[in-house]
Amino acid sequence: MFKCKNLLGLQDLSAEEITFLLDTAIPMKDIISRPIKKVPTLRGKTVVNLFYENSTRTRSSFELAAKYLSADSVNISSSSSSVAKGESLYDTARTIQSLGADVIILRHPMAGSPRLLARTVDAAVINAGDGAHEHPSQALLDLFTVRERLGRLAGLKVVIVGDVLHSRVARSDIWGFTRMGAEVVVCGPPTLIPPGIDRMGVRVFHRLEEALPGADVIIMLRIQKERQQQGLFPSLREYAVLYGLNRRRLALARSGALVLHPGPMNRGVEISADIADGTSSVIEEQVTNGVAVRMALLYLLAGGGDRHENDY
């Protein structure tokens, strides 16, 4: 059973809870592959997508997940609401609560916002990415994809490459993979590796050639051009030379290694086009699995009413 009220981050979850979530996503994935992609499970439930940052990908994934489960979903984004008029998160949360939301999915540029929201509302809160903190549903879909493809998580070597400093995906992946017994290595320029990250149970490398040997899974992070403007690395060209994944470097990993990317990709920068479209890449599967994992999350967090089970 999954007894958490909210999903704010993978840091809070045990290996058992993560396994349960992933197991629940299996029947959900079946539903997506059927001609009728809909079950009546969450009829009458209201899911609010509260997005303070643009994210077509994550938002539509959650939206489809809600629709496949027959929940009603509403999108509130920063450009279309009082959010843009400077209403505080606290007041927006109270309003959404009054509208009768059962689940609120929050994407916010500031770390820790989902915790503030969860303290304010009775509805279940799912963190869809908060600043550089966590993006738990992304990490869960990564875990699901890897487990489905490789049959296990324990004992795998997972290499996360790129801008770990600003990446919520990296943090959630580190918590998730290490908790499931995988070995995690991060690799990037020293200016993009946050201090003290080794205490999360990972090893740090600055050279891809040292990080990749023996890798079962390679997670490439998106590099944002604005980081160059902040002076964190000299140029995209130099970044691509040092940290871009190409055929030659992929050959250093274990054969059959998987390549993941949370998207959207910068082809030719962190990942070469032939790798992105190659047989190692599971980037498209990640998208499908994302819907399944989010259906599982919605199903498990939208339970209501009494805390007992009847004799169905």
Binding site: M1, F2, K3, F20, T24, P27, M28, I31, V39, P40, T41, L42, G44, K45, L69, A296, Y299, L300, A302, G303, G304, G305, D306, R307, E309, N310, Y312
Partner: peptide, 15 residues
């Protein structure tokens, strides 16, 4: 996923 009592169950049963 088709049960009619899901809205009153917490936590939701195993699927």
């Amino acid at each position: 996923l088709y049960r009619d009592d899901l809205s009153s169950l917490h936590p939701h049963p195993v699927v």
